[in-house]
């Protein structure tokens, strides 16, 4: 499978956020998007996730499972917000997303307790999500990536609220995903601890 982006540009209001971004990622490859604030990292990820329309350019998948027109249908998107409900328990949150998202062809999600263990938070799945600290919430949001299988992960500042040890744990998760032939695109300031990622330096668009 191969993810292709050709000549992407995006506009927000009147301003062009970025212009002519192209890349190509094969299975098992990661792309780290870096750049100063406002350079369009988040916008690029939202375009990839299908949440914003690209002004021009095209996105496509080669040799992917049939019946998926746009890559966002094969993607997980971890944005700034965790997409978890404070009122529900962690378990209810995760099981909802597991059942709602379902698995993409070519893999299957792991069960809830295994996912909680993978992010180092086994045993507190019964707690309401609102009880957890910011870092724990972020880690549980990452567990969401594991409970339903998607070949492509789109990660927007994934490690913002994490301490060093959780950072390392997350790097392990990403590496494991790549080993299984997944694709990761992450916007980040900090190094993710992945061996040899492709990088994309966003410069921001100047008039």
């Amino acid at each position: 499978m191969r993810l292709l982006a050709e000549g992407l540009s995006a506009r927000r209001g009147e301003d062009l956020i970025f212009n002519d971004i192209s890349f190509s990622l094969a299975a098992g490859e990661a792309l780290v998007v870096t750049g100063p604030n406002g350079s369009g990292k988040s916008t690029l990820l939202r375009v990839l996730a299908g949440l914003l329309r690209a002004e021009s350019g095209r996105l496509s998948i080669e040799n992917g499972p049939s019946g998926f027109a746009h890559p966002h249908e094969l993607s997980h998107y971890l944005g700034h917000r965790n997409a978890m409900k404070r009122e529900l328990t962690v378990e209810e949150n995760l099981s909802f997303w597991q059942r709602f998202l379902g698995d993409s062809p070519g893999g299957s999600g792991i069960d809830l307790s295994a996912a909680a263990e993978a992010v180092g938070l086994a045993g507190i799945a019964q707690l309401p999500f609102g009880y957890l600290s910011a870092g724990q919430q972020r880690r549980m949001a990452m567990a969401k990536l594991l409970v339903a299988y998607r070949p492509i992960w789109l990660l927007d500042e994934p490690t913002a609220a994490l301490d060093v040890s959780a950072d390392r744990l997350f790097a392990g998760l990403v590496a494991a995903h790549l080993d299984h032939g997944g694709i990761v695109i992450a916007a980040t300031h900090q190094p993710l601890g992945i061996a040899q990622p492709k990088t994309l330096q966003m410069k921001g668009f100047t008039h």
Binding site: A49, G50, L51, F68, H72, E73, S75, Y77, G79, H80, R81, N82, A83, M84, K85, R86, W97, F100, L101
Partner: peptide, 11 residues
């Protein structure tokens, strides 16, 4: 809380 993004993304 960001759930809407995920709801919008699904096929």
């Amino acid at each position: 809380d960001g759930s809407l993004d995920l709801l919008l993304m699904q096929e």
